[in-house]
């Protein structure tokens, strides 16, 4: 036997199909975006917080939420990052991700951020660092997904 054999690697694919059930609450949240261009939150009666994106229960209070509340379309960009490198399976860089607290909401929602020149990342970051006002921009062709809209930095 060869004491130092050629090492074998076998190709594999990790590919499984799912159908994720959004549930009635997220379905309504998406329908409001698709049909009415509205970003809705749900209120936790116990804490009074308005959760965006809408959820049927608050994990902090461990209670069902009650009424629906319209939020935005304007809000504040709380935190951001500018993705600068290409990763397999993710979009081409550069692009900006951020969490936005919409007017009337107590929690922040994740989405893409546009409206800032990304030629120089440090310069762009300085602008985004100021917690600028942003506003939701809706796609013309909406399909009831989180990507039906994104946030654009408001020009002062």
């Amino acid at each position: 036997m060869n004491a130092d054999p050629e090492l074998i690697t076998i190709p594999g694919r990790w590919d499984f199909e799912y159908r994720y059930f959004a549930g009635a609450t997220a379905s309504r949240f998406f329908a409001e975006i698709r049909d009415n261009r509205r970003i809705m939150g749900t209120r936790c009666a116990k804490s009074g917080r308005v959760l965006v994106p809408a959820r049927s229960f608050s994990d902090a209070e461990y209670e069902l939420t009650t009424d629906w509340v319209e939020t935005g379309p304007g809000g504040v960009l709380e935190v951001f990052t500018i993705v600068g490198t290409k990763f397999s399976g993710l979009p081409d860089p550069p692009f900006v991700l951020g969490y936005v607290t919409l007017d009337g909401a107590d929690t922040a929602i994740l989405n893409y951020i546009s409206g800032v020149d990304l030629t120089d990342l440090d310069v762009a970051a300085r602008i985004l660092m100021t917690r600028p006002r942003v506003s939701a921009v809706f796609k013309e062709a909406r399909e009831g997904r989180i990507t039906d809209f994104h946030f654009k930095v408001e020009q002062k």
Partner: peptide, 18 residues
């Protein structure tokens, strides 16, 4: 089975609440 009115997290919440 495939009750689209609940997400996985909502099913879990419902079960644990119960």
């Amino acid at each position: 089975w495939a009750d689209a009115s609940y997400s996985l997290e909502e099913l879990i919440f419902k079960g644990v609440k119960r």
